[in-house]
Write a protein that binds this DNA or RNA. Structure first.
Length: 282
DNA sequence: CGTTCAACCTGGGCGC
DNA sequence: TGCGCCCAGGTTGAAC
C-alpha cells in the first residue's frame, strides 16, 4: 500500500511525538520477522521503554523514528516498513485485531500504533552504522520527490528493462510504487513498455519532473486511498489523491485527455495502467 | 551479470 | 450460503 506520499503523510501525522518520551512499547501479536537483524519484541520493548523520540523522517517508503534509549547516549533508528497494509496511527485503529505495536507516549492520551492487516510489514531497530549500510545511498536511489533527470539517466540508460519496472526498483529512485509509477509515466507521456536504454536525457528529465510534481500533489492531498481496508492517515482519515488518478485503476474508462480507452497490462506480475495513444513508445 | 519469480500474509469479491 | 479461486499499494532472495 503505502508509497512515498502515504508514508510522508504518516510521518507528518505523527510529527507531534517528536521530542516526547515513550513510556512503554507493547507488541500484542506477531510481527513478521523478515530479517535476522530485526530484534525480537522483548529487546525492542526494553530499548524503547523510556526512550526519547528525537526525530521522525521518511526514507523512501519507510518511516524512521530516531530514538535515544533511557540509559544510553547512542541514537538508534526504529524503522517501520508498512509494505501493503501497514499504518501508523495516533487514534484508535480500524480493528483491534491487527495491532502490532502500541507505544504509550508521555503526555498523550492515545498511543502511537502500528496496525497491519496483512501482516507483511516489519518493525526493526538498528544502530547508525547498520542504518547507513542497509539504507544508505548504496542501497537506495535518490528520493523520487527530488531526483533530477541526469540522476535518473545515469541509473537507467544502460538497462534493457521496461521503464515501469525500473521505476519500481528502489535502487533507481526511492519511494515510487505501483500506483505512482503508472501516474508518473502518464504525466511524462511515456509508454511503460519503453526499454530504459531508449530513453533520452530529455525523456528522463520529463520523468523526474513528473515524479516530483505528482508526488508533491499526492502529498498535498494526503495520499491515495483505494478500496475498503485501505490506507488511512495517522488520524484515520482517507487520502484524497485517488480522485486525481489519470490511469491507475481506470482500465475500461476513457483517457481524460484523448478519450481513448485506458489499458491495463501485466509487467513482471503487476498491473500497469496507461493510455496507448497519449503515451509514446520509444 | 541482470532480470524474473515465488513467497510472505489476510480478507474481499467473484463464479459456481 | 459456502467453497475455492483470484486479486491487492511491497520487498526479498533464489532461480533463471
Amino acid at each position: 500500500m503505502p508509497e512515498l506520499p502515504e508514508v510522508e503523510t504518516m510521518c507528518r501525522g505523527i510529527a507531534c511525538f517528536r521530542g516526547e518520551i515513550i513510556e512503554t512499547a507493547l507488541f500484542p501479536r506477531h510481527t513478521r520477522r523478515a530479517s535476522p537483524i530485526q530484534p525480537r519484541p522483548k529487546i525492542l520493548s526494553s530499548k524503547l521503554q523510556g526512550a526519547r523520540i528525537t526525530g521522525i523522517t521518511r526514507l523512501g517508503k519507510r518511516a524512521i523514528l530516531s530514538v535515544t534509549p533511557a540509559n544510553e547516549n547512542n541514537e538508534l533508528f526504529l524503522i517501520f516498513e508498512p509494505r501493503m497494509t501497514g499504518l501508523l496511527l495516533r487514534v484508535p485503529p480500524p480493528t483491534e485485531k491487527h495491532v502490532r505495536l502500541i507505544a504509550r507516549i508521555k503526555k498523550y492520551k492515545h498511543p502511537l500504533i502500528f496496525w497491519d492487516r496483512r501482516g507483511l510489514g516489519t518493525i526493526t531497530m538498528v544502530d547508525k552504522s547498520t542504518f547507513m549500510s542497509r539504507f544508505g545511498n548504496n542501497a537506495l536511489g535518490p528520493d523520487a520527490l527530488t531526483a533530477s533527470g541526469p540522476e535518473l539517466y545515469d541509473k537507467i540508460h544502460h538497462s534493457k528493462r521496461h521503464i515501469k519496472v525500473a521505476l519500481l526498483d528502489q535502487k533507481i529512485l526511492a519511494g515510487i510504487g505501483n500506483i505512482y509509477a503508472s501516474e508518473i509515466l502518464y504525466a511524462a507521456n511515456i509508454d511503460p513498455r519503453t526499454r530504459c536504454y531508449r530513453l533520452s536525457k530529455d525523456a528522463c528529465a520529463r520523468i523526474a519532473s513528473a515524479s516530483s510534481k505528482i508526488l508533491h500533489h499526492a502529498i498535498k492531498h494526503e495520499g491515495s486511498s483505494i478500496g475498503d481496508e485501505t490506507y488511512r492517515t495517522a488520524d484515520n482519515r482517507l487520502g484524497r489523491y485517488q480522485r486525481f488518478h489519470k490511469v491507475y485503476g481506470r482500465d475500461k474508462n476513457k483517457c481524460r485527455r484523448c478519450k481513448n480507452d485506458i489499458q491495463r497490462i501485466i509487467q513482471t506480475q503487476r498491473s500497469t495502467f496507461f493510455c496507448p495513444s497519449c503515451q509514446t513508445r520509444y
